[in-house]
């Protein structure tokens, strides 16, 4: 047995990767719907069977819109179930539907505190769940580690939203993304991935509500908007 073949064999393993290239994922990822992002992710998309940590700096920068194409694809094409756990706001059904999500395959669970991680673990164990989106603002590192192990045993996508302040803390997630808004674009910082580090932020053109016909030709002044309202109730 020559040592070179052994090394080659070791390099074949999916959990071993070279520092100058992206790791090969055991399963092909789910395309994110954004080619720029797909190119930078091991497996060419959101990893199946792995925890993806999303750290949005602010709300409303397009953090959910980033996931929407993949979620729509899973629910429509793969007939997989989507589970949303402990969302901080109401998920607005008409917008999800407009984004292509099959609402008959969506489950929303409001789970306080530690129940959220529990619900997440149970959902990972269920057959037929394609993606889980969970908001865990105060999760312990041990729970996160358990979720990562549970995710590895399943084929579902697991997205965990945490506050941006957690970016400096270590995390067991194999993929960590910090999200920031800049005008019409969402800037993705790849904090961690399997493979070479990506120091440059990625601008992603997520769907923003501007491209619709209701866009203003010029910024409306609040005064004119106020004037357009009737001052009295309809008699």
């Amino acid at each position: 047995m020559s040592s070179s073949t052994t090394l080659a064999q070791i390099l074949e393993r999916p959990d071993v990767w070279r520092g100058d290239a992206l790791a090969r994922a055991a399963l092909p990822g789910v395309p994110t719907g954004f080619a720029d992002l797909d190119r930078e992710l091991p497996g060419g998309g959101w990893p199946r069977g792995g925890l993806t940590e999303l750290l949005p700096l602010r709300r409303g920068v397009g953090e959910l819109s980033l996931l929407l194409p993949a979620l729509a694809r899973l629910s429509r094409d793969e007939l997989a179930w989507l589970v949303c756990i402990a969302p901080p706001y109401l998920l607005y059904a008409p917008a999800l539907q407009a984004g292509g999500v099959d609402l008959s395959r969506l489950l929303v669970a409001s789970a306080p505190g530690r129940d959220a991680a529990w619900a997440c673990e149970r959902s990972l164990a269920a057959d037929g769940v394609g993606a889980i989106v969970v908001w865990l603002p105060e999760v312990q590192a041990t729970s996160l580690r358990r979720l990562q192990l549970a995710a590895e045993a399943s084929q579902a996508l697991l997205f965990v939203f945490r506050p941006a302040a957690c970016a400096s803390q270590p995390s067991p997630a194999p993929l960590r993304l910090a999200l920031e808004g800049e005008g019409e674009q969402l800037i993705v910082h790849l904090l961690k991935r399997r493979g070479s580090a990506q120091p440059l932020p990625l601008p992603i053109a997520v769907q923003r509500p501007l491209c619709l016909r209701h866009a203003l030709a010029r910024p409306a002044s609040a005064l004119s908007a106020a004037r357009s309202l009737p001052r009295t109730a309809v008699a």
Partner: peptide
Amino acid sequence: SMAGLLERLQARLGDDSVHALSS
């Protein structure tokens, strides 16, 4: 299997806490 998941979630979180959406 999803029905089993739904039952377990409802049993722990309460029936009203797990739901679906419709427009």
